[in-house]
Design a protein around this nucleic acid. Structure first.
Length: 426
RNA sequence: GGUGAGAUGGGUGAGUGGCUUAAACCAACAGUUUGCUAAACUGUCGUGCGGGUGACCGUACCGCGGGUUCGAAUCCCGCUCUCACCGCCA
């Protein structure tokens, strides 16, 4: 959620930012609308405070009169209080309406893209920030896509997963299951080495938590929901990890705070079926190691670059061809100010697969969550949040299997061997 | 699932209708003292909103939501959560 004071002081910047997100002139009216509502809110607040002040003074007088035995005079004042109360009641109702309306509108405004974010309609307009300049792995004619390799080497079984749960719930087994565990441990170890604190959060979260990071009300349909208990299955560890600091004010020197966690992630992905979702390309349940940072606003963009390097180092260790995209305004998530996507090349499918999304949310999430730090002047300010996948497993596995396949089996990258305990899948 | 107790500021915890934004203690921060550390002493030490250049002023907030009252942390109702014990259970 954008800060109202920010919208007020930077209206032109906000409008420019929303245009980058392809808001038309009609859509942009929301900005003026919000400011008008806020003006009205302030107006009512002033008047209301005045009435309440009057009532408080009268109540005190009544108390004093009662104590000194002047019952009659006290009774007379009670009528005055009642009159003031009537007026304040009306204003209270009105201000509640205005506030609700304001909040509702504010929640529909996405984050303002960073000035460096290119305009654009869709993923076609994303800017290649760092391209893969080496040659791609050359596969021989008999090379197979990962779903065929999985069958050949008994690594995972989608049909079996479908029997047990439904489509999109892979069942890993044998060396496939071991590979999952190895990747998770490898990613976690690397995050911890970078200074992130390892966490194991709950996988089901309540409404306030889902709201804090912006999954609600924006992406309600994307989450699985356990109705009986009013809990949501997390679509990413970002949700529970970031909410650790909901409604918390920390000392400035505590920043930055770095958290990492492995969790399964659950996504309904309603409506996405077809050729692109074959194999592990898109599933309802997958494993991911997430990194989350709470940063001082002055440092957040620098830290974003540090996160990029971290994710890059993982992909290099796994010896996978990758590229980094800078998302355009039209393709960026609702809550993000700047997002880099990482894609690995799937040699057998001959296309890029997204494996990580690293974003700076600035104060968009912390404003919703009321997560602040006390600055050197004793003022409470919203911290910046950042997060990124480091990494999401399924497409890494897909790419790993496809790119490292040989006629004699699939080679495990050297850095991963200590985790898998085997050098070859064959 | 059953029974009981509870929810107050960063923490412990006092506070049963007006003198309470809320005692006291601890932690934290600043200063004095000191060769250094420690101790001692002094001071500061909640959040949102509105107003003001500002010191400040007003207002709301004692788990959440209602209610009673001129006036509620305090009384009433509903909800949520926590803790303890029992049952079930990895």
């Amino acid at each position: 959620m954008l800060e109202l004071s920010y919208i007020r002081d930077n209206k032109e910047t906000v409008l420019k930012g929303l245009r980058k997100r392809n808001f038309n002139e009609e859509g942009l009216e929301i900005v003026s609308k919000v400011l008008e509502l806020d003006d009205r809110r302030k107006e009512i607040q002033s008047q209301l405070d005045q009435y309440l002040n009057e009532a408080n003074i009268l109540a005190k007088q009544i108390g004093d009169l009662m104590k000194t035995g002047k019952q009659d005079e006290a009774q007379a004042l009670k009528a005055d209080v009642a009159a003031v109360k009537d007026k304040s009641k009306l204003l209270e109702e009105e201000i509640k309406q205005v506030k609700d309306n304001l909040e509702e509108k504010l929640l529909t405004i996405p984050n303002i893209p960073h000035e460096s974010v290119p305009a654009g309609k869709s993923s076609d307009d994303n800017f290649v920030y760092k391209d893969w300049t080496n040659s791609f792995p050359q596969l021989w004619p008999g090379a197979q896509p990962h779903w065929e390799l999985a069958e050949k080497y008994n690594l995972f079984d989608l049909a079996l997963g479908a029997k047990i749960s439904g489509s999109g719930f892979p069942l890993y087994r044998g060396k496939g299951a071991r590979l999952q565990r190895a990747l998770i441990a490898f990613f976690l170890d690397n995050a911890v080495k970078e200074g992130y604190e390892e966490c194991q959060p709950p996988l089901l979260v309540n409404e306030a938590t889902a709201r804090g990071t912006g999954q609600l009300p924006d992406k309600e349909g994307q989450m699985y929901y356990a109705e009986k208990d009013d809990l949501y299955l997390i679509p990413t560890a970002e949700v529970p990890l970031t909410n650790i600091y909901r409604d918390v004010i920390v000392a400035e020197k505590e920043l930055p705070m770095l958290l990492t966690g492995y969790t399964p992630c659950f996504r309904r992905e309603a409506g996405s079926y077809g050729a692109h979702v074959k194999g592990l390309n898109r599933v309802h349940q997958f494993d991911k190691v997430e990194i989350v940072r709470f940063e001082h606003p002055d440092n957040s963009y620098n830290s974003l670059l540090i996160m990029l390097e971290h994710v890059e180092s993982l992909l290099q260790a796994l010896e996978l061809p990758y590229r980094i995209l800078r998302l355009c305004g039209g393709d960026m998530g609702f809550t993000s100010a700047l997002t880099y996507d990482f894609e690995v090349y799937s040699a057998a499918q001959q296309r890029w697969l997204e494996v990580s999304s690293v974003s700076n949310f600035e104060t968009f999430q912390t404003n919703r969550m009321k997560m602040r730090f006390k600055d050197e002047n004793g003022k409470n300010r919203f911290a910046h949040t950042l997060n990124g996948s480091a990494l999401a497993l399924p497409r890494i596995v897909a790419s790993l299997l496809e790119n490292h396949q040989t006629e004699n089996g699939i080679r495990i990258p050297e850095k991963l061997v200590p985790y898998t305990g085997f050098e070859w899948i064959n």
